[in-house]
């Protein structure tokens, strides 16, 4: 792993709904093979930042660069190509409810590869096995538990072996053990596949356990007020808001 090769760059990003500005002047870099944490209190715009990064919402101002390519400044075909290289685990899993787990995972494979039905079936079985859901091919999303939905969502996000994986609040709604297992899985994916991982979360345990880089969004000043390795940040930060957040308000 080359330590500090930039993978995603955010430059001077302003996020707004209409005239309501959520965050402004965001500038940070996600390096290759980082586990990058987007953190901050509730309602500070973490999930909205994620929607900007994955191309669901256009910035009011500023740029999102993938490698050297300006995402929002490029042609639709180029954007599609970039989006194909990312996988997203949505907060609720967002599995397509009218399809079985196998069909959910097979859809991007059928869409973007020339694989035959048998090969797709093999890959689907592999991805499900990787997230610990071997044998659940023919279940519908409504038939499995919340934690299983998340893992199935992860299997779908990994379908095309993306270079970048985004997670929206992966541990929300999971019991501590499942949350820990998901963290381990994320680490494992980064180490084995070399993926870059971006996580929106406010789960301190996860942040310290797996985060290697971060950005801290503050809802009051409407911008980022800290960044860097979360453990280092905890040692070094002078900012009372960041300290309060990282210590659960105990210091």
């Amino acid at each position: 792993m080359s330590a500090s090769e930039p993978h995603i760059r955010v430059e001077d990003l302003t996020m707004a709904y209409g005239s309501y500005v959520l965050q402004r002047d965001l500038t940070f870099t996600v390096n290759r093979a980082d586990i990058f944490i987007i953190m901050g209190g509730s309602g500070c715009g973490k999930s909205t930042l994620l929607r900007h990064l994955v191309g669901l919402k256009e910035p009011a101002k500023g740029r999102v660069l993938y490698g050297a390519t300006d995402f929002w400044g490029s042609e639709p075909q180029e954007r599609d190509r970039i989006m194909r290289g990312i996988g997203i685990l949505y907060q609720s899993g967002a599995l397509w409810s009218s399809m079985t787990l196998a069909e959910n995972i097979a859809l991007p494979l059928r869409e973007y590869t020339r694989l035959g039905a048998g090969e797709i079936q093999d890959i689907v079985a592999l991805k499900l096995a990787l997230v610990g859901l071997a044998g659940f091919e023919d279940y519908y999303p409504s038939e499995i538990s919340g934690g299983m939905k998340k893992r199935a969502g992860l299997a779908r996000a990994m379908a095309l072996d993306p270079e970048i994986l985004f997670f929206d609040e992966p541990s929300a709604g999971l019991d501590p053990v499942s949350a820990r297992q998901l963290d381990d899985l994320i680490l494992e994916l980064r180490d084995s596949l070399g993926s870059t991982i971006v996580i929106v979360t406010h789960e301190l345990a996860s942040i310290f356990a797996i985060g290697s880089n971060s950005v801290f969004l503050d809802p009051e000043t409407k911008t980022m007020i800290a960044g860097g390795n979360p453990r280092q940040l905890l040692q070094e930060t002078r900012d009372p808001k960041v300290r309060t957040f990282l210590t659960r308000g105990e210091q």
């Binding site: 669901l56 989006m83 949505y90 991007p108």
Partner: peptide
């Protein structure tokens, strides 16, 4: 509408479908 609530439409879009 329910697919919209459940982020399923987002998932389709980000898959490029």
């Amino acid at each position: 509408g329910t697919m919209q609530v459940n982020e399923e439409i987002d998932a389709l879009q980000t898959m490029g479908v």
